[in-house]
Amino acid sequence: MRALVWVLAAAAVAALAIVPFTLSPVMVQFGISMLLFAVLAQGWNIIGGFTGYASFGNSVFFGLGTYGTAVAMVQFHLSFALGLVIGAAVAVAFAVLIGLPVLRLRGHYFAITTLALSEAVAAIISNLDIAGRNQGLILPLIRGDTMFYELSLGLMVLATLTVLWLARSRFGFGLIAIREREDAAEVMGIPTTRYKVMAFALAALFSALAGGIQAYYLTFIDPASAFDLSLNVRMIIMAVFGGAGTVLGPVIGAFLLSGVSEVLASYITGVASLFFGLVIIAAVLFTPKGVIDAARRLPRRGLAYFLDAVRETRL
């Protein structure tokens, strides 16, 4: 059964890899956005799903990734690869610096504090000449959707393999202990502060790399779109919808919800987000542990699974 899952996953990756050579350019563009969302959801999964810290700061890491890459390429004429590295380094450094004080807060206090980060960093960037102030930056244009697509796919696979390692490693076990009961984790000799900061930095790494790819792909960035809080909300929804704290859940959540919102947007343009909201409410009600949990237990439990879920949710 386990082996089957990984064979299927490998087959899915292979199928995804040949998309740019078989499907239309529109599908490739949709694919890039879907894959980057999967990376972001997986990044959130590390700090939110495994460690239990509901971060609203991941969109800041994404934004720092876009700006790090853009500034390196536009102002210093460095290569895209170097830009990605710089963007990621800036985001990871920021995660460590801000994580040390902020990760001392728990629960809602942590969420609220990270919520404010987006606005604060966007305001700083809007006043920096080197970052193009309010106008943003225009990156050199290249035509290379296939390259962006394969890069995004590679990043998604890398993020998922990282989470797979997390789910099996001592480090990941420590993060789960922190999520389940931080005081007890401390009593058991787990260096909680170091672990939390490392998880935050790892989440920042993947968010920033996704941001860097996005910046070069769209060739234009400005503070409003780079530090968009609603992006963070989407990561959370996708990760939780698929199954937070699981290896494949966030990817599945990102794929399904990207698909749903794309279909809704093309058929019922005006009220698409309303229907998107309904999908989310239904998901929270009926599959609160994520579709991956539902897929695992539904065959055995049948409709009773949904009834139990509604009862347990206690709205």
């Binding site: 789960i176 389940e180 009961r181 005081d183 007890a184 009593v187």
Partner: peptide
């Protein structure tokens, strides 16, 4: 620890 502090969901 006092109060046992187990990981209840594990």
């Amino acid at each position: 620890p006092e109060g046992r502090q187990l990981f209840d969901r594990m």
